[in-house]
Every structure is written in structure tokens, then in C-alpha cells.
Amino acid sequence: MCRAVYPGSFDPITNGHLDIIRRGCTLFDHITVGVLNNDQKSPLFTVAERIEMIRAVVAPLAETTRTTIEVESFDGLLVDFAKRKQANCIVRGLRAVSDYEYELQMAQMNRHMQPDIETVFLMSADTYSFVSSRLVKEIFFLGRSVKQFVPPIVEARLKAKASQATA
């Protein structure tokens, strides 16, 4: 069985992230979407909210593929989480050459710590090569629509957050 971990902060999950998960389903029998719990960042959504949104957007995908998809949080080292999940691969999406340099360094460090876990890079689809969670939040809070960048449930949750902030 080929098991993978797809880690990230997913604050929020974008269509680009979903595309990587969808394409990963053609490669792996089991994918764990690992939502990083990082106290050093100031996320818009709580870990529980991010997990809930991801589960909602991957549910239709999980029903139409042979791949088992699970979503859970983690903290600490990614390779330790991957080992606990019995994963033999870490999936990382690359949008641009600038992503590659950082991701290569991380992959090499992970390989040094856990040689039996491979890192697989999936190139972002052209449609999503410029989309990031940070930009989605910035565009949204500056008053523009993000419906082409995120699943509908995420757009609704962004609107709810904005309403809470103004209340």
C-alpha cells in the first residue's frame, strides 16, 4: 500500500490544494491531509475549522476514488507525523521555482532524518500557479471575490469570519 501525507497550514484550503489532493489520489492508496498546528503563525481559522472545511471539500472526492483520504492535525516534525501515519511519501505542491528551493531543502532534511520516506513534488496546475492562502485572504479582506480560488464552503466561511469581525 502506498500511503502519503500532504502537509500544510491550509488557512484556508484553496482550489490549488484541492487539485494536488485530487491528483495525489491517482498515485496513492491513502492520503492523510496533515493540518499543521503552528503556534508561531496567526491563522485566520482555527485548526478545527480548517479540518472541518477540508473534510467537507474532500468528501466528494473520497467517494469517487479508490483512495482513502483522512484529515487530521499535527505539530512537531513532519517526518515524525508521517512515520506515525505509516506513510512512505510526503506530497508537496510546487507553484514556482521559488517554492522549489525551500521545498528541496526541507525534503533533503526530511530524508536525512527519515531515509525511508520519499518526498514527491507535484507541479501546480497552471490555473492555480499563482494562488496561495495568504493572497486569497488578502484579496477577500480587500473586498474582492475569491470564488474562483476556493471551494464554495471556504468562501462562505470567509464571509462568516468577516461578519464576526465587523460585529
Rank of each mutant, 00 (worst) to 15 (best):
G8Y: 00
S9W: 07
S9V: 10
D11M: 03
P12E: 09
T14Y: 04
N15V: 08
N15M: 07
G16K: 07
G16M: 06
G16W: 02
L18T: 04
D19P: 09
I20L: 00
I20N: 03
I21K: 07
R22K: 12
R23F: 00
T26M: 15
T26Q: 15
T26Y: 14
T26H: 15
H30L: 11
I31C: 01
I31W: 01
T32K: 04
V33R: 03
V33C: 01
G34T: 10
G34N: 10
V35G: 06
L36Y: 10
N38P: 09
N38Y: 11
D39A: 15
Q40I: 14
S42Q: 15
P43F: 05
L44K: 07
L44W: 09
F45V: 08
T46L: 05
T46M: 05
A48T: 13
E49N: 07
R50Y: 01
R50A: 07
M53L: 05
I54S: 02
V58G: 00
P60A: 02
P60F: 03
L61S: 03
L61E: 02
T64M: 12
T64R: 15
T64G: 14
T65D: 09
T68F: 10
E70G: 12
E70I: 12
E70Q: 12
L77H: 02
L78C: 01
L78F: 07
V79K: 05
D80H: 12
D80M: 10
K83R: 15
K83M: 14
K83I: 13
K83T: 15
K83L: 13
R84W: 09
R84M: 10
K85L: 07
K85W: 03
Q86N: 15
Q86C: 12
Q86T: 13
A87P: 02
N88H: 12
C89F: 15
C89W: 11
I90A: 06
V91R: 04
R92G: 00
L94P: 01
R95H: 06
V97W: 11
D99I: 04
Y100A: 12
Y102N: 09
L104N: 14
L104S: 11
M106W: 06
A107Q: 08
Q108H: 14
Q108Y: 12
N110R: 08
H112L: 15
M113L: 15
M113A: 14
D116R: 08
I117E: 08
E118A: 10
E118Y: 07
E118P: 02
V120F: 02
F121Y: 04
F121P: 10
F121D: 05
L122G: 06
S124K: 10
A125L: 10
A125R: 11
T127I: 10
Y128D: 04
F130S: 14
F130M: 13
